[in-house]
Design a protein around this nucleic acid. Structure first.
Length: 425
RNA sequence: GUGGGCGUAGCUCAGUUGGUUAGAGCGCCAGGUUGUGGUCCUGGAGGCCGCGGGUUCGACCCCCGUCGCUCACCCCA
């Protein structure tokens, strides 16, 4: 940093290095495990798509589509964009391949948005998510939300709260929007500066505004949840009943409006109560009943959930959860005899599935012991001239307390078996 | 796009109204009598004080510019 390097990671991006990346790995592994348990298969799709996939997918008026996408032309003049979120690509793949429904997939993906970076907001961030297409069964909504809930629980988060809402479907949203606009029009003067100018083009956004002035206007006004049609109301009720019977606690937030235009009916968001930044939404999602059509497919209902890895890691930090950070190894080989013995031994240990490490560059025993300690290894295997001479190794328990039992000598040929035995008891 | 803060050792930061060899803690390396870590002690390596210009006898410090980082608004994960 000080002798300013020639290159640094671009603004709003960062390197996740060993140490921190351990957390990242464990989160991904945990999510993958849950996704499989809930019947989702992995989808890996291109990071860039025809720009239309995102324009039509997430809505041309959304902020993300309008001013935050990384759009570029390839050498043949195709208009492409880096994926700003996960859902649109999945739906494009669904439309392209006509899979048997219900189609349930999960993903891990970077997402790119050209924004001013700040705490918990990056130009490249990473998302874990699931999407399920081909049915509008509300109990599937329950499963998706529950998967997310259990996942957060499993990684140790306690201060997470779930908010849900229903956006209705297109036919019941239109009359509501009319009502809302009328209400906003009569109170136009009381809105915050920004929404006084903007309420006509995106009335729903006003509901999400945190300014006191706007809240004052919208609080007594009409709420979408009270104006959805009978079918949407019934759908939402089944979602609520399902969550109740699975023991997932939530609150209904009629003001919950999510950022993409494609949502219909169920929407939800998970917020960390431990984070003090404004970027405390760790994950969210909802149902989208028109996205497949929008991308040229048959009308197909879908529901998905996405969680930001960086937000997740910030939330873990905010709750001081370190359970995922352990990167210690099983065995460290301390070798002062030189030659190939430690190379051969470390390979033998790795071959039976242990994580084994050694030091390089012929360091003193003291300094190698130091490395062994810091590696977190449970055992150190010592090979010095004496062991070399007698074809033995000295096994030292680095974590034990019984001084008499901490160290003993075994034949080199028995070392791996003895280590395995010691580690499993 | 708008506004605030900050750039000094690998990291976190001190640096006295501008004064001569730029500091601490942590980390790293090596020692503390000849083969044993986590504690302790000693020593060492490591800085164009982000970059460029200006003011001054003299600038890490003041002024201008520039680049970068960061936080917030907006929006989002």
């Amino acid at each position: 940093m000080s002798p300013s390097p020639l290159f640094a990671a671009p603004k709003g991006t960062r390197d996740i290095l060993p140490g921190e990346s351990r957390r990242f790995e464990k989160l991904v592994a945990t999510f993958s495990d849950f996704a499989h348990r809930y019947g989702f298969g992995l989808i890996v799709s291109p990071l860039f798509e025809d720009v239309g996939v995102f324009h039509r997918g997430i809505g041309e008026q959304s902020d993300v589509a309008r001013k935050e996408m990384y759009v570029f032309e390839d050498r043949s003049g195709r208009r492409l964009a880096l994926r700003p979120e996960g859902t649109a690509s999945v739906v494009r793949a669904f439309v392209q391949h006509h899979p048997v429904t219900p189609w349930k997939v999960w993903y891990l993906t970077p997402a790119f948005r050209y924004e001013q970076p700040q705490a918990g907001r990056y130009r490249q961030h990473h998302q874990l998510g699931v999407e399920a297409l081909g049915t509008d069964d509300p109990t599937l909504d329950v499963e998706v939300i529950t998967l997310a809930w259990r996942f957060y629980e499993a990684v140790g988060l306690r201060q997470i709260s779930l908010m849900i809402n229903s956006m209705g479907h297109r036919a019941c949203r239109e009359p509501y929007l009319e009502l809302l606009r009328q209400h906003l029009e009569t109170h136009e003067g009381e809105l915050c500066d920004e929404h006084r100018a903007l309420w006509r083009t995106n009335a729903l956004r006003v509901l999400d505004c945190k300014q006191e002035s706007c809240v004052g206007v919208t609080a007594p006004g009409p709420m979408l949840i009270d104006h959805v049609c009978e079918e949407c109301r019934a759908h939402f009720q089944i979602v609520r009943d399902g969550l109740d019977s699975l023991g997932v606690t939530y609150s209904v937030n009629p003001r919950l409006v999510r950022g993409f235009d494609y949502y219909t009916r169920t929407t939800f968001e998970f917020v960390s109560g431990a984070m003090n930044s404004a970027q405390n939404a760790v994950g969210g999602g909802g149902r989208y009943d028109r996205l497949a059509e929008e991308l040229g497919g048959d009308p197909t209902s879908g529901i998905g959930f996405g969680s930001g890895l960086e937000r997740l890691m910030l939330a873990l930090e905010a709750e001081s959860i370190v359970a995922l950070d352990d990167s210690s190894i099983d065995v460290f080989i301390v070798d002062t005899a030189g030659g190939q013995s430690s190379l051969v031994l470390v390979e033998a240990l790795r071959a039976v599935g242990l994580s084994a490490e050694r030091s390089y560059d012929q360091r003193s025993m003291k300094s190698q012991m130091k490395l062994a300690d810091r590696s977190g290894a449970r055992l150190a295997l010592l090979i010095g001239p004496r062991e070399r001479e007698s074809d033995t190794v000295t096994i030292r328990d680095l974590r034990g307390t019984d001084e008499a039992q901490r160290q003993h000598s075994v034949a080199l040929l028995d070392a791996t078996a003895t280590v395995l035995q010691l580690l499993t008891k």
